[in-house]
Design a binder for these strands. Structure first.
Length: 257
DNA sequence: AGAACCGCCTGCTTGC
DNA sequence: TGCAAGCAGGCGGTTC
C-alpha cells in the first residue's frame, strides 16, 4: 500500500513528467470521482507530497489532491487506452496520466492550494517538541500512534512495523510509557527507514508500482513485515503476527520490549 | 475528550 | 472443480 516512500516516489516522477505542462482533458471513468472539475486547460505549477496526499498545484490557485489509499496507483502511458480498473485520466500533449485503483478507495478532490506546511512530516519540518507535548502522554498503542496521520504524516502499516522492529520497541507498548529518549531514537530510525524506502522506490510486496509500472525494491529490506514464523533478523527469535485495531502487526517478542 | 469500532470496496486465497 | 466465505486495510464517520 502506498505510504510516504511510495507517494514520494510517484511525486518525484510526476514532477519530472508534468510540471509546467497543460492538462488538455480530464476524463472520469468512476462516478465516485465526480466533482473533479475546473482543471481543463490548466497549467501544472508543481507537485508536492503532503503526508500521503499528492498535491498537483495548478495556476489558478487550485490543487488536485489525490490519496491512493490501499490499491491506488498513478500510471503514465502514451496509449490512451487505460489498464484494467482505470478510474480517471488526465490528457497531456505527450501522454496520459491514469489513476488505476481496483478497490476504489482512492480519492481525488480539487481544492484551494494550501499555504504553509504542517509540522507532522518526519522528512520535512517535523516538530519533535510539539509531538512530545501533544501526543506522548496518550494511552494508545505506540504502533497505532505511529499510523495516526494527525500525529505523524506518512507512516502506514508496513513502515510502522519496520520502524518499531528496528527500534526494539514492542508495538503493544502504550505511548505514555515511552521516554523522550526512546521517542527520539524512534524518530531517528524512522527517518532512516523512510529515506531508504524512497531510495528503493517503494515496497512492492503486493501491487505497488511506480509511475512507469516498475516495482520498487524496498521489499528486500523488510525485516519484520510479512515475515510471520520466520527468524528475526536482529536476534534470531521468531516473528509473530497479531492484530491491532484490525490491522496485522509483525514483531519479534524477544527483542522488541 | 479520547479511544474503539464500522463501512467502504474488489481481487485473491482458503475451505468444503 | 466450483463456489462461497474469508481476508486485506487507510481513513472518515459514528459510537462508546
Amino acid at each position: 500500500m502506498p505510504e510516504l516512500p511510495e507517494v514520494e516516489t510517484v511525486c518525484r516522477q510526476l514532477r519530472q513528467k508534468i510540471r509546467g505542462r497543460t492538462i488538455l482533458e480530464s476524463w472520469i471513468y468512476d462516478a465516485k470521482l465526480e466533482g473533479v472539475n475546473n482543471i481543463r486547460r490548466r497549467n501544472v505549477v508543481d507537485i508536492e507530497r503532503r503526508g500521503k496526499f499528492i498535491a498537483v498545484h495548478l495556476e489558478n490557485g487550485l490543487s488536485i489532491k489525490i490519496h491512493l489509499r490501499m490499491t491506488g496507483r498513478l500510471f503514465w502511458q502514451e496509449c490512451p487506452e487505460g489498464p484494467k480498473s482505470s478510474r480517471w485520466r488526465l490528457t497531456f500533449d505527450d501522454g496520459y496520466l491514469f489513476l488505476v485503483d481496483p478497490r476504489r478507495f482512492a480519492t481525488v478532490k480539487v481544492e484551494r492550494t494550501e499555504k504553509g506546511m504542517k509540522k507532522y512530516d518526519l522528512l520535512k519540518n517535523f516538530d519533535e517538541r510539539y509531538f512530545l507535548r501533544t501526543h506522548a502522554g496518550r494511552r494508545v498503542d505506540v504502533k497505532r500512534l505511529l499510523m495516526d496521520q494527525r500525529a505523524i504524516e506518512g507512516i502506514g502499516n508496513i513502515y510502522a512495523c519496520e520502524i518499531l522492529h528496528a527500534s526494539g520497541i514492542s508495538p503493544l507498548r502504550k505511548t505514555v510509557t515511552l521516554s523522550n529518549e526512546e521517542w527520539r531514537n524512534v524518530f531517528t530510525i524512522a527517518k532512516r527507514i523512510l529515506k531508504t524506502g524512497i531510495e528503493k522506490r517503494g515496497t512492492s510486496i503486493s501491487d505497488w508500482r511506480d509511475l512507469y509500472g516498475r516495482p520498487g525494491q524496498n521489499q528486500h529490506e523488510l525485516k519484520a513485515y510479512g515475515r510471520e514464523g520466520k527468524p528475526c533478523k536482529i536476534c534470531g527469535g521468531e516473528i509473530h503476527r497479531i492484530k491491532q485495531g484490525g490491522r496485522s502487526t509483525f514483531y519479534c517478542a524477544d527483542c522488541q520490549k
